[in-house]
């Protein structure tokens, strides 16, 4: 039995301790916004936050997460899609197939939390998620817009 704090709620899950957090989130908790794509932390489709740090959940065993650590998934990023990144993503109409986009947004949210006004180089270094449809330029534009939005508001 593992105890997890996910999107602000304490949950108990009966699961093998070496199960990757990704699959606990998807299969035991039913939150399917976090995606499986590579299983080896290469692509970032499974990106979530643990205590505010963007983390690739597909290689992290659930037993490595303490009950008090705060797990945030795309479903918990905002109650109604109103996070500045989600708004910027909509304004730039970033997604094509969309499969990588939850991970992309969570990676971007992690970046902005650490670095509210990232340069192109910062974005290049931190957003290493794979998108095969090719949305990178719009991802970049949306991150910058959200950063400006947050900075202005803050």
């Amino acid at each position: 039995m593992a105890r997890l704090n996910i999107n602000g709620q304490d949950r108990e899950v009966d699961v093998d301790p070496d199960t990757p957090l990704l699959w606990v989130i998807r299969e035991q908790l039913g939150l399917t916004g976090t995606k499986f794509a590579c299983g080896v932390a290469q692509c970032g489709a499974c990106t979530i936050h643990i205590d505010g740090i963007a983390t690739r959940s597909c290689v992290m065993p659930v037993s490595a997460v303490a009950p008090e650590q705060k797990i945030l998934t795309i479903e918990g990023l905002s109650p109604d899609g109103s996070h500045p990144l989600q708004k910027a993503w909509l304004a730039h109409e970033v997604p094509q197939c969309g499969y990588c986009q939850a991970g992309m947004i969570m990676a971007a949210a992690g970046l902005l939390q650490q670095n509210p006004n990232p340069s192109d180089e910062d974005i290049n270094a931190e957003i290493t998620n794979i998108c095969r449809c090719g949305t990178y330029n719009r991802v970049r534009a949306a991150i910058k817009e959200a950063a400006a939005d947050t900075t202005n508001a803050g």
Partner: peptide, 21 residues
Amino acid sequence: LPRLDTVEKLTGKQIYGTDLT
């Protein structure tokens, strides 16, 4: 025109084959 299928891709609500239950 904006695409008709963007919003749910931003919130994790869009269901793909791997998400079916």
